[in-house]
């Protein structure tokens, strides 16, 4: 009993220390006011002042910064634009990633470890350097343009760098392994006899794929989509290196609040809202899944 309790306790402690506590600190800052000080917000929690200090501290917190976010359309536009970019990149990553996972899962078993290795291999180089190399590939005088000019397919260099297209390329490239791996994991375990049964019962290979393979790989697809969508939504490095200044993303807005305006409270409010945008659909989704599962039983 005690052992079981400890086992359950460890992940909860982990979540508490590395997610809940930092999040509460961010919430606290989002309720504060900006100040010219170090750190640049007030009130500061003064534990030495005792209970009255604590009361004083809480009385100074308010929701002003959240109201502020509604007063300027910049924030909503940035949230929407980020959602759009994240959703589209997730879709493209899925369309590219699924066939790769499928091919990997259908490959001969002695090949699979090598293929798996090839998917993971890019992680051995720093993420920053890989995104940086895309600048060299996509720029006006870059590898891609030089190649296309050489083949004669184009006569004027294409402008790709500093456009939304470059951001999509960057996100899809960077997060592709996170889509491939979970889908591959579910496809690999797929029982071939189910497909044979479907074909025996008169399904064409395509229908069998659609009616059997896809539904059975759903957990992998969902996990992959979450793993791509969530980091893409808050992505900052890729749009700032590959995107032009017209690619509006919430990560960049957050950066500007934090670094240019030195307004940590508003920056924290932006982050809290971002988290709510992410968490609410996930909770709804999981609840729905659970209901389906219970209905299935």
């Amino acid at each position: 009993m005690l052992r079981r309790l400890t086992l359950i306790l460890i992940p909860y402690l982990w979540l508490l220390a590395l997610f809940l506590v930092p999040f509460l600190i961010v919430v606290k800052i989002s309720l504060s006011d900006v100040a010219l000080a170090r750190p640049p917000y007030m009130p500061q929690l003064d534990l030495a002042a005792g209970l009255s200090g604590l009361k004083d501290f809480f009385s100074q917190l308010d929701l002003e910064n959240f109201w502020f976010l509604t007063s300027d359309d910049l924030y909503w536009k940035a949230y929407l634009s980020s959602l759009k970019i994240a959703a589209f990149s997730t879709l493209i990553t899925l369309l590219v990633g699924f066939p790769i996972s499928y091919a990997m899962a259908s490959a001969r078993s002695e090949w699979r470890p090598t293929l798996m290795m090839l998917v993971i291999l890019p992680f051995w180089t720093s993420f920053l350097i890989r995104v940086y190399s895309w600048m060299g590939i996509l720029s006006q005088n870059g590898l891609l343009n030089s190649f296309l000019l050489w083949t004669g397919l184009i006569h004027e260099p294409l402008t790709i760098l500093n456009t939304p297209t470059a951001v999509y390329i960057g996100i899809v490239y960077t997060y592709l392994p996170f889509m491939i791996l979970p889908i591959y994991a579910t496809l690999e375990k797929l029982d071939i006899s189910l497909l044979e049964a479907a074909e025996d019962l008169g399904c064409s290979r395509l229908t069998a794929f659609w009616l059997v393979t896809v539904p059975l790989s759903k957990p992998g697809i969902i996990a992959g989509c979450f793993l791509v969508f969530i980091p893409a939504l808050g992505e900052f490095v890729i749009p700032s290196l590959l995107g032009g200044s017209r690619t509006l993303m919430i990560g960049k807005v957050l950066w500007e609040e934090f670094f240019n305006n030195r307004d940590w409270p508003v920056a924290s409010a932006v982050a809290v809202v971002l988290l709510l945008i992410l968490i609410i659909p996930i909770i709804l989704f999981q609840r729905n899944e659970q209901k389906n599962r219970e209905a299935g039983q």
Partner: peptide, 9 residues
Amino acid sequence: MWTKVKSGT
């Protein structure tokens, strides 16, 4: 204002 100049938003 700078964000507006740069991003048009």
